[in-house]
């Protein structure tokens, strides 16, 4: 216990501050009640998993998405935003539809990464849709292969108007 305390004192606060001051203030398209807290469901749709790892990284102490009111939830029933990675692998298209259907209105879809935006390097593969907008109505796009956690958090704060 003492070790733990000492380590805490030694490390101090890891979470980086001021990320939201770096982004241009654009008026959020979201209704006011979603601007303080956003519940997200992740949907891997054929990604190489690097985009997914960058989303996971948002939860580490350096980014700590929770202190912005952003959370990843276990069920699509609880989610406002569906963050999709991957080009829309054919064998997942049905599951993607079902996940989207399970979300309550209003709901939004974000395509994370180049391959979710337009197929990326997987363009032309026989079991890929060539972009999530061919599968679900995409509202927001975050380019990159993969987009960095910085890009992701800024995109999220941007759509929340924070």
């Amino acid at each position: 216990m003492l070790n733990l305390l000492l380590r805490k004192l030694h490390m101090g606060r890891l979470t980086e501050q001021g990320i939201n001051s770096q982004i241009a203030q654009i008026p959020s398209a979201l209704p006011a009640s979603f601007r303080q807290s956003l519940q997200i469901r992740h949907l891997a749709c054929g990604s190489c998993n690097a985009c997914d790892w960058e989303m996971t990284a948002l939860g580490n102490s350096l980014y700590d998405h929770q202190h912005f009111g952003i959370d990843f939830v276990a069920s699509p029933r609880h989610a406002d935003l569906l963050m999709c990675t991957g080009p829309g692998a054919t064998q997942l298209v049905n599951a993607a539809h079902e996940t989207y259907e399970a979300m309550a209105n209003p709901k939004w879809v974000m395509a994370v990464g180049d391959c979710a935006i337009n197929g990326g390097v997987f363009k032309g593969a026989y079991a890929s849709s060539g972009g999530m907008d061919r599968v679900l109505p995409v509202d927001f796009k975050v380019p990159g292969c993969p987009p960095s956690p910085d890009d992701l958090i800024k995109a999220l704060l941007g759509i929340m108007g924070k």
């Binding site: 891997a44 749709c45 054929g46 990604s47 692998a89 064998q91 593969a125 026989y126």
Partner: peptide, 11 residues
């Protein structure tokens, strides 16, 4: 498994 199969080896 194999839900994320895209056909990379053909690609």
């Amino acid at each position: 498994l194999f839900y994320t199969h895209k056909g990379i080896e053909k690609l």
